[in-house]
Design a binder for these strands. Sequence first.
DNA 1: TTGACATATTCCCATATAGGAATATACAAT
DNA 2: ATTGTATATTCCTATATGGGAATATGTCAA
Lengths: 124, 124
Amino acid sequence: MARLSTTTDVFNAIAEPQRRAILELLTEGELSVNEIAASLDLNQPQASKHLRVLHEVELVEVRQEGRQRIYQLQSESLKPIHDWVGQFEALWNTRFDQLDAYLQSLQTGETTHEQRKPADGTSI
Amino acid sequence: MARLSTTTDVFNAIAEPQRRAILELLTEGELSVNEIAASLDLNQPQASKHLRVLHEVELVEVRQEGRQRIYQLQSESLKPIHDWVGQFEALWNTRFDQLDAYLQSLQTGETTHEQRKPADGTSI
DNA sequence: TTGACATATTCCCATATAGGAATATACAAT
DNA sequence: ATTGTATATTCCTATATGGGAATATGTCAA
């Protein structure tokens, strides 16, 4: 069984770094294929192929302007990524709070032997 | 040229939905392989293989407890995803603000012909 | 020690791809 | 109509994989 197609969903589309770079570039504004290629030091077919993927998952929109095709970021399509990773955000804060409290107790000299550093699992 | 390995980075590791599901499950607490497999209706080797990938990119930690291997989420490793997608967040707010203003002007009847709905690029 | 339990790993397979090279297609200028 | 510009697409290739099936490896209990 093959990996899911790059056009399955946004997660698969952005796994490839060149495509992430294209999206970052497009935050500054819409661009033509050759402009994207030049900016990222890609060959034209490379750029075109990546843009096709991005377009299929609706991460970019494209319109024809004469001979040029102008690509535009569709940033809302990245929200599923943000939403998905958001569920882990609370965990980061929790850990940070615990560490913060621990560091403060160190400074105030209130540390007792019963208080320990946040526990780490043993890595194998 | 093949796609980047699933263990290249976190982006590639989470492209696979089963692996995302595993991470979500582990937000509730550490689990053994069989517990993960049962919870997600996976075969044991399936679970084990996915966990191996997650471990290699440091999204999970594992420790041996007798015959069991207990896997634990390492949520900080997801920060690069959060950080990466964060650069697009400002764009969402901007668009939302514009839409909000537009909707309000509709309600107050202040819309003039010079004011238009947020422009959409033409999709091909 | 042996058998049971837990899990990692190997072998196999069909599939999809990123880039290279080449080509096809579409639009613009002369 | 011809030539130039812009870009999509095709052909090719070596590679990696997710799941299935089977097996190897490690720990525990009787």
